[in-house]
Amino acid sequence: MDFEALWLTLRLAAATTAILLLLAVPLAWWIASGLGTMRALVQAVVALPLVLPPTVLGFYLLVAMGPLTAPGRLLILLFGHTLAFSFTGLLIGSVLYSLPFAVQPLVAGFEAVDRGYIEVAAGLGASPWRVFRTVVLPMARTSLLTATVLTFTHTVGEFGVVLMLGGNIPGATRTLSISLYDLVQDGNYAAANRTALALVVFAAAALAAIYLLPSVRRSDGRQADVVR
């Protein structure tokens, strides 16, 4: 197995997940807090990576980060080189590509929070930030965990965007899924099988964590309601 690729993949997934949660939590809360047209449009844009071929997203990012566009030139000025074919470039691509996997579970979780609890807290003098931190987030913690696991695993399994945007540079942009592709191209099926199996086991274990952990199963409150 290509351990360099494994390490890079884990770093990319961890960084993507951290950045995405910081972005997705406020964005999802804003989407879930109202009904306007603007919110619907933002939700549609957030969902785009679900239906677009990853290569389309990768292509536009490649162009946007290159010297042909104003933002690209600004990035080159800031970093001294183009972000394409670099870890930072991959990270930007991953954040955009996994955006719906972080935002959508959170929107569902926030929408499921009974507004009555928010009123109770406000009626006790709690500021909106305190209400969010102490009432909404704990009630939506299953969704927070789902969003974290889905974002992480989705980034681990990403292929098209990485190939378009990062190329295939060992140690810099070659992730596990690209390494698998290379192994198959080389006809090294035994090694490819090991890498593929590792990805399958990892994804299955992550999903099992969402559905199986007792704390997760209880935290949606349904069991407690039945008991009462």
């Binding site: 009974d114 009555g116 609890y117 009123e119 109770v120 807290a121 406000a122 009626g123 006790l124 003098g125 709690a126 500021s127 909106p128 209400v131 102490t134 009432v135 704990p138 009630m139 409150g221 407690a224």
Partner: peptide
Amino acid sequence: AHLRPVRSAAQAARLFRNMTVEENVAY
């Protein structure tokens, strides 16, 4: 609501499930 000189309890007793009775009362 949170900036008004008013404190309130609604008809339905919605208690914060992640807190104890005492933590609820102290909220």
